[in-house]
């Protein structure tokens, strides 16, 4: 860990002004916001993150969950993951979100972790977290040790020859399936962006993970009103029964009437370099009868572009089974 200066922002303007002085809001940032600290502190201990200034944003007024006039939900950036997961409206109308959050981490971590922090959760790629290893995400141009190394847990979708790091978040996968919108206040204005555009593919700039620029502060996340008669579910597959990042996961939100799927939203976790929304799978499902054959076709479509590495070929099949089973469960209860 490097020495750093800690300050506290008492209002959003202070935080934005402090953050705006950073050279980047991405990997290598010299100024970082800190909320729960469950990712940042770890990475600072490992010297993967070496900010000179750390700005505490936990006192900013973004700690509420509110129902919107249109029936949607507004989730403050500072809302703790545990509070969000157990919120009665979330449990009732956005079950997939509650289930996704509760499938990850531990109660202690969820009590600390925040909505915005989880959106910005960094990859668990072992090579990214070890400064002795080459890693294009941590040190652009140094190479990717994971491609020739231990890559069993890494991504098969959205990868590039420069980076195969998985986005580890469960929450993000549910938010992708729920078509969440991220609201950002920056130095110039306040703007919002759909979650599908918030995270970036690694391409040849894997150090850039989101659209955030210096000074940008996530203030809240909104969810559209729950689709009428829809059901949602999160299924997470991993080696052990608890406390492990997903090898494959699926967030599904499905409306089925009389056995016929009228609307489907599908996102996959554990397999993508970003929370992996699959419009291909959604297209295969929409207008079809809820049968295993249809689910299978959707799964094939979702994984059509998968590029497995030496140790993670099994994820292609695992992700398919995960999605098929999630669809089976969600339509059974519908």
């Amino acid at each position: 860990m490097k020495l750093f200066e800690l300050s506290r922002a008492d209002d959003p303007g202070q935080a934005i002004a402090a953050g705006a002085k950073a050279t980047t809001a991405q990997q290598g940032a010299d100024i970082r916001f800190i909320a729960g600290g469950t990712t940042l502190i770890d990475l600072m201990k490992l010297n993967v993150e070496t900010p000179q200034k750390v700005v505490d944003v936990t006192h900013l007024p973004f700690g509420k969950i509110e129902t919107l006039a249109d029936g949607g939900l507004k989730i403050g950036a500072m809302v703790r993951n545990s509070e969000l997961a157990y919120h009665p409206v979330v449990r009732k109308d956005y079950a997939v979100l509650s289930e996704a959050i509760l499938s990850g981490a531990s109660p202690q971590l969820r009590n600390m972790a925040t909505t915005a922090g989880n959106l910005l959760q960094r990859t668990r790629c072992m090579y990214f977290r070890d400064t002795a290893m080459p890693c294009n995400k941590r040190e652009p141009g140094s190479g990717c040790a994971a491609i020739t190394g231990v890559n069993r847990s890494l991504a098969i979708l959205g990868t590039s020859e420069h980076c195969i790091a998985t986005n580890p978040s469960d929450m993000n996968v549910a938010l992708a399936a729920l078509e969440a919108t991220i609201h950002i206040r920056g130095t110039k204005d306040e703007h919002s962006i759909p979650i599908s555009d918030f995270h970036l593919l690694p391409g040849d700039t894997p150090q850039r993970e989101t659209v955030l620029e210096p000074g940008d502060l996530i203030i809240h996340v909104t969810l559209p009103p729950p689709a009428p008669r829809s059901r949602s579910l999160y299924l997470k597959l991993r080696d052990r029964a608890s406390y492990e990042f997903a090898l494959a996961s699926a967030a599904v939100v499905v409306t089925a009437t009389g056995g016929k799927i009228t609307r489907a939203r599908v996102a996959l976790g554990g397999v993508g370099t970003k929370p992996w929304r699959s419009p291909e799978a959604e297209a295969e499902l929409t207008g079809q009868t809820a049968t295993e054959t249809v689910f299978q076709k959707a799964a094939e479509a979702a994984l059509r572009d998968a590029k497995p590495q030496s140790q993670n070929r099994f994820k292609v099949e695992l992700a398919k089974r995960c999605l098929v089973h999630a669809l089976k469960l969600v339509t059974q209860t519908a």
Partner: peptide, 16 residues
């Protein structure tokens, strides 16, 4: 790690 010989999952999150 086959390239540099490090026990790469050297923590209790990655060593299951």
């Amino acid at each position: 790690d086959p390239q540099n010989g490090a026990p790469i999952n050297s923590n209790v999150a990655d060593y299951i």
